[in-house]
Design a protein around this nucleic acid. Structure first.
Length: 277
DNA sequence: CGCTTTTGACCCGCGC
DNA sequence: GCGCGGGTCAAAAGCG
C-alpha cells in the first residue's frame, strides 16, 4: 500500500534566501551583505561575476522548482489513477470502504431515512485558533450572515448564514463553537447547493485557505452523526500509518493541494517573485 | 452606492 | 394561554 500512497515531503526546501548561510556554500564572502551596494568600489569584472553566479543560482533554483512541480504532478495523477481504480474495484469490501470515506469526506451525516424527507443536514467540525472570535468556516461557497444568537447550551454565539451565490440556492449554515472545545467550530449545513462552489467569485476565500489543511480524527461526541473535521491549525504529520483510511484522505488532500498550487500560475508567479526578490 | 454585517425585534413551535 | 428558546427579519451601520 505504501507505494500507492506515497509520502511526500511537501516542505518547500527552496534556496530563496541566498543571503543566509545554509544556501550559500558557493557564494564567496566578499559578495555577501551590502558590500556590493555600498561605497566600496567593486571592479566591473567582479560585479559581472557576481551577476553570472547569481544567474546560475537562480537557474538552478528554477530547475529544482520545475522538477519538484513535475514530481508533484506525477504523484497527483498516480493518486488519481489509484483512486479511480479503487472506485471501480470489484471487491465489495473495498468499494464500500472507499465509498464510505468518500461520502464522509464530501458531506457526511444525516441518517438515510431522514434524507428523503427533510433537507439534508450535515455537520462539519473545523479546528481554528481559539483566540479567533470570527465564526467563519471557509468551504468554498459564498455566505451571507443573517443572524446571530446566544443559545442556552453554549456560551459562544451561534451565527446563521444563507448561501448568497444564487437566490435559488436555499442552503443554510449555522456556525457555533464547540461548548467543550472552543477551538473547534461546528458548522451545520441544511440543504444541498444546486450550484458549484463560487471559486471564481470568492477569491478571498480561495486565497486564504492555504494554511495546512487536512482531515483529522473527528472530535465528535457520543451519538452525534458522522462529521468531517478540517484542522486548520496543526501542521500535517507524516506518520507511517498509511493503513489508516483517515490518514489516506489526509494525504490525498495534501497531494491535491500541492497539485493545485503547482498548476496555479499566480502561485508560481509569486514564487518566482520571491526568488528574484 | 451597493453589498455585507450587526443587532434588537419579532415570529413560531413546544412544553407546561 | 403563557413563557421560553431557537430561528428569522429588517433597519441601521460599516465598508470598499
Amino acid at each position: 500500500m505504501e507505494s500507492a500512497w506515497p509520502l511526500v515531503d511537501t516542505s518547500l526546501d527552496l534556496n530563496i534566501n541566498p543571503r543566509q548561510s545554509r544556501c550559500n556554500k558557493a557564494m564567496k564572502p566578499e559578495f555577501e551583505g551590502e558590500a556590493a551596494h555600498s561605497g566600496v568600489k567593486v571592479p566591473v569584472k567582479d560585479e559581472a561575476g557576481v551577476l553570472v553566479e547569481e544567474l546560475n543560482r537562480v537557474s538552478a533554483e528554477n530547475k529544482k522548482l520545475t522538477e519538484m512541480l513535475t514530481v508533484l504532478c506525477e504523484q497527483y495523477y498516480a493518486l488519481q489513477h489509484r483512486f479511480n481504480e479503487l472506485m471501480s474495484n470489484n471487491s465489495k469490501k473495498r468499494k464500500a470502504e472507499c465509498e464510505a470515506y468518500t461520502k464522509n469526506l464530501i458531506e457526511s451525516s444525516s441518517s438515510d431515512e431522514e434524507s428523503s424527507k427533510k433537507p439534508k443536514i450535515s455537520r462539519v467540525h473545523v479546528r481554528t485558533n481559539p483566540s479567533d472570535t470570527s465564526l467563519i468556516v471557509r468551504d468554498g461557497y459564498q455566505w451571507r450572515k443573517y443572524g446571530q444568537k446566544v443559545t442556552r447550551d453554549n456560551p459562544s454565539p451561534r451565527a446563521y448564514f444563507r448561501c448568497s451565490f444564487a437566490p435559488s440556492c436555499l442552503v443554510k449554515k449555522k456556525v457555533q463553537r464547540n461548548a467543550e472545545d472552543p477551538s473547534i467550530l461546528v458548522a451545520t449545513y441544511e440543504g444541498e447547493h444546486n450550484h458549484d462552489p463560487a471559486r471564481n467569485n470568492a477569491p478571498a476565500e480561495r486565497s486564504l485557505n492555504l494554511s495546512p489543511t487536512h482531515t483529522a480524527p473527528s472530535a465528535q461526541t457520543k451519538a452525534s452523526p458522522p462529521t468531517v473535521t478540517l484542522d486548520l491549525m496543526q501542521p500535517a504529520r507524516m506518520e507511517d500509518d498509511a493503513e489508516e483510511p483517515a490518514r489516506r484522505i489526509q494525504q490525498l488532500l495534501v497531494h491535491q493541494m500541492a497539485a493545485f498550487l503547482s498548476r496555479d500560475p499566480k502561485f508560481t508567479a509569486a514564487l518566482a517573485a520571491a526568488i528574484s526578490g
